[in-house]
Structures are given as structure tokens and as C-alpha cells.
Design a protein around this nucleic acid. Structure first.
Lengths: 203, 203
DNA sequence: GTCTATATCGGGATAGAC
DNA sequence: GTCTATCCCGATATAGAC
């Protein structure tokens, strides 16, 4: 595999990612990807035999990026407060750098919900291990009794939803003022962490 | 317009709603909608000139259904606790009856983000009025100082996200156990309300 | 490896009979 | 109002020259 080939392949992948993330599999056009990459359609098929295969090459990476590595943050000896703040901060940062990721992943999950399980099995996330940590915190009297699924869904939901609902939030709540929307996102890095900690900490 | 015509139109709309909600605009096929309605493609075009127009007939209603009427619940003289519990309970109920609604709306919002503003203008939601109510609660020393956008996004996000992330939650957190997932949803009607109230109530 | 040209098919839309 | 048959474009995919 020559230098040039690697470079072309990468160019195609970047172009494909851009188009697929914006339009989704059904909405994306091979022609648009080719244009974006500055090549022609035939070359796409030369590198990736079909649209499906090209898509798969994009999706797995995007999905793994979307899934925050809860285990890594939760399994440490920092305080629960530090863990929540670290998680929310890092995750919102990542989403700001990849604002289309959530809608893309969600859309395609619905299209073929089966593919994800294999990817998840390969991931390093270990819910049981995290659940044990959580139980320790609860029994130590630091936080309320909340199950891991609820806590995870709440944390991720609070981080992700502003990106999913962007058209409504920016358009309606902020009258299409993009600066106001971005300021809103920035505020959330501390606000969401405070919100979660207030909700789960025992008083 | 005869009885029969109304009936056929309704049948088409129901079929279209089912297919569009599942596949999205790009993924939906007029043939599939016709099959679902037990008629043929030509008749679809007879009633709704184009796929676009048929889609529009579905989308506006779905979008209005998806938008919870915050104003109606917030503008009342009930306590903040009652308001939050009523909102979360009703909204999760509605989502359980329309589990595909969130992903559908989100997907199509991304496709044409402009259309929503007109729909929203026509809605009865009045953010300013709600913001005033919120301010009163804050100044009355009942809840923490949180802006309306953050509170709305948090409340809606916590309700909606379990439906958006269903494939991951049901598939991974609950090992594809649908009963466990449904039980989880049921728990959330009180859990989410508690979570929000804990987070915002002044101690 | 990259291009142009083309095959092939699927899907939205229309014509026209009944 | 409902059907069958068909048009026609657009999109994936391939053939073949360079």
C-alpha cells in the first residue's frame, strides 16, 4: 500500500464522514462524497466496494467516539464529585468538537439496531464493575440510592440532549442567536455537573 | 368530500405516519406506504401530489405532539413540585405511547431546520411568560437560580433520552431484556421528577 | 490508481382505462 | 376514486481506457 493510496483512502474517509454525518446513510449520495473528496465516483468503489462498506468504515468509529468511557472515569479513587465533573466536562468538550455525532449515531442505530451489540462487546466498558463502585458510594452514605442505568442515562442525556435538540434550542429559545446558543453550551459544563451532584448527593 | 374519501385519506395518513416514523423521509418508500395502506402508489399521488407533501402532512402534527406544552403546566398556581411531577409524568406517558416520535422529529429537524420556526411561532408556548414564573419561584426562595433554557433542556432531555437511546439502553444495559427496559421507563416517571426536584430545590 | 462512459435498477411521478 | 402500465430521472455500481 503506497503513500499515495493511504492518502487517498484517508481523504475519502474524511469526505464520507462529513457527508454521512450530515445526511445520514439514506440521505447521503456517493456523488457528493466524491465531490467532497475531489475525486470521482468510480474511485470510491475502487477503494470501498459499496456504499454499505464505506458507511460501515465510518460508523464503527463514530459510535465508539460517541460512547463515553464511563468505566475509565468511574473506576478511580477520586471523589464522586470529581468524577462527575470530569465526566461532564470531557464529554461536553468532545460533543462540541463533534456536534453532529449524536444525531448521526441515533439515526443509524434505529436503522440497524443489531450492529451495535458487537461493537459494545468489544468496548472496554464494564457496567458491572461500575455498578459496584456506585454501590460503594451509596453505602458509604455519599449519594442517594440510584441504579446505574438511571444514573448513566441521566448523565449522558443531560450532556447530549442540547446537541440533539439544537435546532429547537437555538432557533426557538435563543431566536437563532448562535452566540447565545454557544454560551449556553459553555455554561452547561459546570451547570450540568452541579445539577447532577445536587440531585444525587445526600444532604 | 365523501365518507369514503375521508376514510381513504385517513388510512393513507396512518400508513404514512407508520412508515415515515420508522424509516424517516429518505428511507421511506412510497411503495411501502401504499402496501401498508392496502392501496397502490398512484392513489397516494392522487391524494397527496408528492412524497414531500405527504410527509409535510405527517411532520407538523408529529412535531407538535413532540413538543410538550410547558406553558400550560408551568402557568398555574400549583407548587413547583406538583408542576414538575405533572410535567414528567404526562410527558413520559406520551412518549411511551409514541416511542418513535423523538428520533423521527430529531432526524427530520436536521434535514430541514427552518420549517420548525413557523410551527413554533404558531404554538401556544410562551417562553417569556414561563420565564417570569420561574423567576418568581427563584426569588421566593423555593428553587435555585437556574435559567429557563437550562431547566427546559434538562427536563425534556431526561424524559426523552431513554427513548432516543433505546437500542443502547435495552441492548447493552439490559441485555436485550425488553421487560427490564419497560420497567426502567416506568421507574423514571417518579425517579426523574425526584432527580430534578432534588437538583433545583433550595435546601 | 484514476478517469470517462455506461449498464442497471429502483423509485417518484404521470397517463389513461375503468 | 381506484387501478395498471409506463415514463424518466437519479443513484449505485461496473467496464474498460489510460
Amino acid at each position: 500500500m503506497s503513500e499515495q493510496e493511504l492518502s487517498t483512502e484517508k481523504t475519502i474517509l474524511e469526505a464520507a464522514k462529513k457527508v454521512f454525518l450530515d445526511k445520514g446513510f439514506d440521505g447521503a449520495r456517493m456523488q457528493e462524497i466524491a465531490d467532497e473528496a475531489g475525486i470521482n465516483k468510480a474511485l470510491l468503489h475502487y477503494y470501498f466496494r459499496s456504499k454499505d462498506k464505506l458507511f460501515d468504515a465510518i460508523f464503527e468509529e463514530a459510535f465508539k467516539q460517541f460512547l463515553p468511557n464511563i468505566s475509565e472515569i468511574m473506576v478511580s479513587d477520586r471523589s464522586i464529585e470529581e468524577k462527575v465533573r470530569a465526566f461532564v466536562g470531557h464529554y461536553i468538550d468532545m460533543l462540541q468538537n463533534n456536534p453532529y455525532l449524536p444525531v448521526f449515531v441515533i439515526r443509524e442505530l434505529q436503522r440497524k439496531p443489531d450492529t451495535i451489540l458487537e461493537i459494545l462487546k468489544k468496548s472496554k466498558i464494564n457496567p458491572i464493575q461500575v455498578a459496584v463502585i456506585l454501590k460503594q458510594q451509596t453505602e458509604g452514605g455519599q449519594i442517594i440510592d440510584i441504579s446505574l442505568p438511571h444514573l448513566i442515562v441521566n448523565m449522558i442525556g443531560l450532556c447530549v440532549f442540547p446537541f440533539i435538540g439544537r435546532p429547537i434550542i437555538e432557533g426557538f429559545l435563543f431566536n437563532n442567536n448562535t452566540e447565545a446558543y454557544n454560551a449556553f453550551l459553555l455554561e452547561r459544563k459546570t451547570l450540568v455537573a452541579d445539577f447532577i451532584l445536587n440531585a444525587i448527593k445526600l444532604k
